[in-house]
């Protein structure tokens, strides 16, 4: 879709998100020191918080560019449901900012001394969780469109909504590491994803209509 072509022409933006993620995650082992056991326990939480912040970073751009050059107006006037278009944009956002994080996560997990099984679980939770981040973030981005200092406001609006994903995402990895099985966490995350998939585009579309006015 169009957003992907655009992203390719703005390559530096994509890389910023990914590098931000890598650097934040890498800072922790350096700061905490080389205690293998401690690092292993922290790993999931650190990677997840970094993923939250990284996806936050690119959120404000989701609709802002379209808003400023008038494309958003045109998108509102297209004879197709706006929520579908929003879904398309969110998908593009996820491919640009979420998917690279998922792919990088095993590498970063290694820094924390995670092993094969835990790495896989970390990747899996991010795979389910990052689309939720993009979907929820879209609501915040749509609501704060055109406001001054919208970036800070988006964080305030959206970060609390991210909390459940964070708890279950990081929880799944920890539970798995302690041998308790992570099915419960994963199915809850799946449920959150489905719920967000249905409701978030619709809510964002409504918010966009208000913002453009």
């Amino acid at each position: 879709m169009r957003d992907l072509t655009l992203a390719m022409r703005h390559r530096s933006d994509v890389l910023t998100t990914v590098f931000f993620f890598i650097i934040v995650v890498s800072l922790f082992p350096l700061g905490v020191g080389p205690e293998a056991q401690l690092l292993k326990e922290m790993a999931a939480g650190v990677v997840w918080v970094a993923a939250l912040l990284a996806s936050m970073l690119s959120l404000t751009r989701l609709f802002a560019d379209d808003y400023h050059d008038g494309t958003l107006e045109q998108l509102l006037l297209v004879p197709q449901p706006l929520s579908l278009i929003v879904l398309g944009k969110v998908l593009a956002h996820w491919i640009i900012s979420g998917l690279p994080l998922v792919l990088m996560s095993p590498l970063l997990g290694l820094q924390f001394g995670l092993e094969g099984d835990a790495l896989l679980m970390l990747m899996l939770t991010l795979l389910i969780g990052t689309p939720v981040l993009s979907l929820l973030g879209a609501i915040g981005a749509a609501l704060t469109l055109g406001l001054r200092g919208g970036g800070v406001l988006v964080s305030l609006l959206v970060l609390p909504l991210y909390i459940p994903v964070l708890i279950f995402g990081a929880g799944a990895v920890t539970a798995n590491a302690m041998g308790m099985g992570a099915e419960g966490h994963l199915s809850l995350m799946g449920a959150i994803l489905l719920l967000a998939l249905v409701l978030a585009p619709w809510a964002s579309a409504a918010a966009l209509r208000i913002s453009v006015e």
Binding site: R2, T5, L6, R9, H10, H68, D69, G70, T71, E73, Q74
Partner: peptide, 8 residues
């Protein structure tokens, strides 16, 4: 606004 994407 022209509604054009400047990069395209």
């Amino acid at each position: 606004h022209y509604g054009l994407k400047l990069e395209l």
